[in-house]
Design a protein around this nucleic acid. Sequence first.
DNA 1: GGCTTATTGATAATGATTGTCAAAAGCGAT
DNA 2: ATCGCTTTTGACAATCATTATCAATAAGCC
Lengths: 129, 129
Amino acid sequence: MKRNTWQREAVRTALGTQMGFVSAQDLHSNLKGTGSQIGLATVYRALGDLATEGEADSLQSPEGESLYRACSTGHHHHLICRGCGLAVEIEADDVEQWAKSVAALHGFSQAEHVVDVFGYCSACVPAVG
Amino acid sequence: MKRNTWQREAVRTALGTQMGFVSAQDLHSNLKGTGSQIGLATVYRALGDLATEGEADSLQSPEGESLYRACSTGHHHHLICRGCGLAVEIEADDVEQWAKSVAALHGFSQAEHVVDVFGYCSACVPAVG
DNA sequence: GGCTTATTGATAATGATTGTCAAAAGCGAT
DNA sequence: ATCGCTTTTGACAATCATTATCAATAAGCC
């Protein structure tokens, strides 16, 4: 049976207070910073569970780190700022349909798609060099 | 100046003979298997260069590995089989437009997007459990 | 053939993530 | 509140991909 531990709750809460995506490592530092003595492995496990249960979104940054964010239910994608981590949820029925049809067209099944847009939000546009 | 080494050529060739995406590690094993004594670091470097020069596509598998594939020029996306690695290049002007407009709509600049579909091709559909 | 310098490659270093396993805590029954 | 069974935790080791290091090598130019 799934048990209710303060650690899991702490992760859920910490994730909820984040405005954007965070890595497990960051979230862990974050928690430690607020006095929590939660372990790193536990944060990974909690995030994994949260993602599995649909309470969190996970995606990979271009650098290959796994990032997580509390999410509303349902399937959606994100527009993520490389500067501040701000994430905007975007609905993309068109893209869903497109992904589905492309997969079907080529005889692929169990299709999963990765659709995310990275850029700099208006507040983070770096000085163009 | 950029020099022409057999190593770089070997990587380019090996990549060209692959039908789908391969990881740097795989490509390295592959090359070693054919008798090449190329070093792992060199394979990483060559792949990175190839990708930078636009001669290869790179993307990240859901597991977080970087995968590479010789590619035609231009920007496009992929439908990748989890089973055999088969990759189908897909053009998606619609998606390009969508990504661009979504980014613009939210004031994001320098938008890059990650759009790939993973699934099982008709030959690799696993027994449904 | 030499010189200069980019490139290589063996290995160490890094860094994220997962596995291990004994100790601790949760939950239901008492 | 306590007991007991099980899940969960957490410190640390292990794993794995990738990058950095740096002396030795080889390209390209004279």
